[in-house]
Design a binder for these strands. Structure first.
Length: 275
DNA sequence: CTTTCGTCCTGACTGC
DNA sequence: TGCAGTCAGGACGAAA
């Protein structure tokens, strides 16, 4: 479930391996994921020099040559691995890039919720997938004042609002649960009821949860690359996510961590600590 | 306009 | 053991 910290860890690991290299072979093993690949993608990749790697929300942006950007989204099951050319393609390896040092980068995505697109450098910010994204939660401009103003009048639960990428970019189900837990806010609370004080707490909780997760990604694997070549995933200890029935780590309430369904997704929380 | 819901996909898991 | 059923999730687009 790659969310911002996992995507950022993939970006960093990938940057160490591919930035500055040239693609000598690009193999597309199918023509689409969530949507069709852009026209002539293989031709654009083949021979391209790889520049800087950026991230916007859950999207990875890879600069190609002087004026191109490769856009990657890992969806739900997307993974990137680093290996050598001797390894045969595995099932669901949809894009395989061979670099000029014989490193092979594989984009693997069984459920195919991921996305690959190509955009001109100057038009990246106006790309339909990026243009409407909300602010980066780790930037200084993302703060309690912004959150409070954005949630004012919204008659949706705070949980759903934080999953809306137009409000803030990069949060998914796991980190929304964790941030609400840390902020002491009930996931069922209406977004409109988050005033400035609660919004300040929420902003701080989101930032600290994400920052700690990114740090865990960077420290848990050598140079962000695991022994099997996989980038970006790491062992992490969630306070509430996936812990239905377990004791809440912050208090000794009898009920422990509850799980409820909100708009078809599981929400984990502590009813005592989160109001 | 706002908000909710169905849809895509396959692997992991549950229960009979 | 095997198989059917359920669940997981990001983001879009349709529906209300």
């Amino acid at each position: 479930m790659p969310e911002l910290p996992e995507v950022e860890t993939v970006r960093r690991g990938l940057a160490l391996k591919i930035s500055g290299r040239r693609i000598v072979r690009a193999e597309l093993r199918r023509l689409d994921l969530r949507r069709p690949f852009p026209p002539a993608l293989a031709e654009r990749l083949d021979g391209a020099q790889i520049g800087a790697l950026g991230r916007r929300g859950k999207y990875i942006l890879i600069e190609l040559d002087a004026d191109g950007v490769l856009l990657l989204h890992l969806g739900m099951s997307g993974r990137v691995t680093v290996g050598n050319a001797a390894l045969p393609a595995a099932p669901h390896d949809h894009m395989v890039l061979t670099l000029d040092d014989d490193t092979v980068i594989r984009f693997n995505d069984p459920r195919r919720f991921g996305l690959i697109d190509y955009v001109r450098r100057g038009e990246a910010a106006r790309h339909p997938l990026l243009a409407r994204l909300g602010p980066e939660p780790l930037e200084a401009s993302f703060d309690g004042a912004y959150i409070a103003s954005k949630l004012a009048g919204k008659l949706t639960p705070i949980k759903a609002a934080l999953l809306d990428q137009r409000i803030v970019a990069g949060l998914g189900n796991i980190y929304v649960c964790e941030a609400l837990y840390r902020a002491g806010l009930s996931p069922k609370r209406l977004a409109a009821s988050i005033g400035r004080r609660r919004a300040d707490r929420l902003a701080a909780a989101i930032k600290s949860v994400l920052t700690e997760a990114i740090a865990a990604g960077g420290s848990s694997v050598r140079d962000y690359v695991q022994a099997d070549g996989e980038l970006g995933y790491f062992q992490h200890h969630w306070a509430v996510y996936g812990r239905e029935g377990e004791p809440c780590p912050g208090c000794n309430c009898a009920e422990g961590v509850r799980r409820i369904a909100q708009s078809g997704r599981s929400t984990f929380y502590c009813a005592k600590r989160q109001r």
